[in-house]
Structure formats: C-alpha cells, structure tokens
C-alpha cells in the first residue's frame, strides 16, 4: 500500500520494474530519467556491478503533482535480474504499488522470461499479494533487435507465454530508443492510481 502522510498531504507510490537479467529494466529508467525531466524530482541512483549488472536496485524519484490536494510522488525501482540476487529482489518488491514486467524479446531468452515471471508471482505471494490483483503492465522489450538479424519472438508468442492468464496491458518496446517506454510507464501509473483511489475510497 502506498505511503500516505495525511498530515503533510503526501502520497508516495512505489513502482517496480521486474524481469530477467539483461532485459532492459535499467535502460527503461535511464530513458525516463533523460526524457521525463519535468516529472523527475531527483537524481537516478544505480548500483551496477561488473558487466553492467544491477546489484541492489536502481532508483528514480518522480513527482506527479497534486491529486485531490495530495502531493503524489512516485518512486521507480528496478530489481536485480540475475537469478542469484533473489533476496534483494524480494526486498525491493516489498510494499510495491505497481509493477512493470520487462520481458526480453530475444528468442533465446524465452525461458528466462517465464522463470522471472514465476519468480515475481512467488515473491508477491510471500507478501500476501496476488499477481492478478497488483497493477501490472507487460513490456516486450528489444523489438528493435530484429533489424540486426537476431531471432526475436513474435508478440503473439510472448502474449501466450506470459500474458495469457494475466491479461495485463502490454506494450512492444525498445527501451534503448525509447519506443514504448512512456506508454508503459503512463499505463502503470494510471493503473496504480486507480488502485490507490480504490484503497482511499475516493
């Protein structure tokens, strides 16, 4: 549940970018940081290790302005995608309000996507949350790589693999170019605020 400070009339929402290693979570945040300057309220913080892999999380604070007299703040996080960073992923996921699942379109990463989604499902469950109820947006990233001749999955295949049951809004994207990044984030914010309104009884 979002952090609501009634006295200061502030609402803090947490949106987490989840997905397998090297799928482009950090690239998403990096693009948002560079192109949504108006909404970004602070520096993007990254914890990259050798080989550009996220160790703990990336963090990007944003502001959405006032909604019903409340100053709504967003905190975007990424989780480390490598399988071995399971504990950190779980810690970052705690008290999440909205989720973006970044799937890798490369055909060779098909199984990794499925495993990561399963991992997300399990971690949410441990916090008493249902993947079917948390505001969730699917992003099928790296669509641009088809131009380089790398085999990528069709959107139909990805939908069938990952979104058949969830039926979450989904977007093809190229985080490197920025295609689909804004649409993904905007939709996730919309769903998160809708869920928040429900919780607040607005």
């Amino acid at each position: 549940m979002a952090n609501i400070n009634l006295k200061k009339r502030e609402i803090e929402c947490k949106i987490v970018y989840y997905g397998p290693g090297r799928c482009g979570k950090t690239t998403n945040l990096d693009y948002i940081f560079r192109h949504f300057q108006k909404q970004v309220t602070g520096e993007m913080v990254t914890t990259e290790t050798d080989g550009d892999r996220t160790l703990f999380f990336d963090f990007l604070p944003m502001g959405l302005g006032k909604i019903r007299g409340y100053d709504v703040r967003l905190q975007l996080y990424t989780v480390p995608g490598q399988v071995k960073y399971s504990a950190t992923r779980k810690m970052v996921l705690r008290e999440v309000d909205g989720l973006v699942f970044v799937a890798d379109s490369l055909a060779v990463r098909r199984q990794k996507n499925v495993l990561s989604l399963k991992d997300l499902h399990g971690n949410l469950k441990e916090y008493g949350l249902s993947i079917f109820k948390v505001p969730l947006v699917m992003q099928y990233n790296k669509r641009d790589l088809v131009e380089q001749g790398i085999p990528i999955m069709s959107l139909t295949t990805m939908e069938r693999d990952l979104n058949r049951q969830l039926k979450a809004p989904s977007f093809p994207a190229s985080a490197l170019r920025g295609d689909g990044v804004g649409d993904t984030l905007k939709t996730c914010i919309k769903l998160t605020l809708k869920s928040l309104r429900k919780q607040m009884g607005w």
Partner: peptide
C-alpha cells in the same frame, strides 16, 4: 568466469546507503 568469480560490490556509495536507510525502513 571473471564476472562470476569477482566478489560482488559489498559496500555501495553513501547515496545508495541513504536510500536503503530511508526507503527500506517499513
């Protein structure tokens, strides 16, 4: 092998530690 064997960065910069301290106190 080098990536897998290299020790993970165990100490992160102070700004990251500040986020951990402030944002992970639930």
């Amino acid at each position: 092998n080098r990536i897998e064997a290299s020790p993970d960065m165990s100490v992160v910069p102070e700004n990251v530690q500040d986020i951990i301290k402030n944002k992970f106190a639930f």
